[in-house]
Design a protein around this nucleic acid. Structure first.
Lengths: 192, 192
DNA sequence: CTGTTAGCGAACACTTTGTTCTGTAGCTAT
DNA sequence: ATAGCTACAGAACAAAGTGTTCGCTAACAG
């Protein structure tokens, strides 16, 4: 890929991220992004059709990274060890969020766009389906599909609660809360 | 209140509701609403400052009704004291949603606005706080605030799952699912 | 019946969007 | 190095939407 293209693309991503620190997604205009990225108008539209399309692609890159690595790795991350599956995945993601490498948190606040939330939730559902409920017992009283949606949704809700409260809890605390509300409802839920 | 004002106001509400059946909130313009409601441009702005302000007021009226009646009918009981499904608060709300009196469901779909979701969630939190967790045991391992957020969020998530799946479940089935994922995590949760 | 108020609709200035075009500068391959 | 390609800048543009103003008409309340 042409270096110029790559440079422009990252400049646009960086600009949107910076703007999201200051204002809501809805209030950001394409012109704002252009000014912040310091690029020409036509250049923006050469890369992205609309503001929403930009957000979609940014979401895709973010979640491909975070959720992708969460699926691969079952290892320790940073200071804390959460080696016991399936919750190592949860810890991994929480660490990612706390480090805030990509300013993903600004997108997760309650003011965020449905576009972003849709990506986050569907990514989490995929993760729950493949990493957490693979050996779910058959004797449960609720549909497996409902359970996946519920657990993924609970995680997203917890992250939002964490943000609204000023992020005072550690990833381990959050993990323990998450276990407290999910393990009892997973048949054969392990507490090892 | 002047009959003309009332007539215009409901025309605008009805117009927005009709439009939400056909397209996403974000794609609806003030001009669309004006055309659909068949009113003058200045008339709209005499009633509402912006499109968002209109949605806010519509949300307020909807939730004042649905959540208000849900609270009234349960003033003497906690949420889990009635095992007869039709009498629980949850069932009350679910039946409201199923009847779809106010086309509230179109607003609840995944494409909806953060404005609406914010109202729905905070209304549910209030309901959970006052009706469901009033006599929560003190020995729980997670903060009460987290629990409220989790339970309210779980309800909202369930409704979204229900919508996405084509609303094939009955309110009673949903109620049983909801109990399955919430009763185990409430300390002293009763199943009488 | 009369003063008041809401609605109409045209006109307005303004912002944002997305496209097009021309000249310039940077890139890649030979 | 140079030739050919491609991305970028920036101006200009049409189109659409926003929010306001104003004079007129029609409906309302007492």
């Amino acid at each position: 890929m042409d270096r110029r293209q790559q440079k422009t693309r990252t400049a646009i991503f960086r600009a949107l991220t910076a703007l999201l620190d200051r204002q809501s997604y809805a209030s950001i205009t394409v012109q704002d992004i252009i000014d912040e990225a310091n690029i020409g108008r036509s250049t923006f539209y050469a890369h992205f059709e609309t503001k929403d399309e930009l957000l979609k692609q940014m979401c895709r890159e973010l979640f491909d990274h975070i959720i992708g690595t969460a699926m691969d790795k079952q290892d320790t991350h940073g200071l804390y060890t959460c080696t016991n599956a399936p919750h190592s995945v949860i810890c991994h993601i929480l660490q990612h969020l706390q480090e805030n490498d990509n300013n993903i948190l600004t997108l997760l606040s309650c003011e965020s766009s449905p576009i972003f939330m849709s990506y986050f939730k569907s990514g989490m559902e995929e993760l729950v389906r493949t990493q957490m409920l693979q050996e779910m017992a058959a004797g449960t009283s609720v549909p497996r599909d409902f359970l996946i949606h519920h657990i993924a949704g609970s995680f997203v809700e917890m992250v939002q609660w964490w943000l609204e409260g000023g992020r005072v809890q550690t990833p381990q605390e959050l993990d323990s809360y998450f276990r407290a509300v999910t393990e009892p409802i997973i048949s054969g839920g392990r507490t090892d």
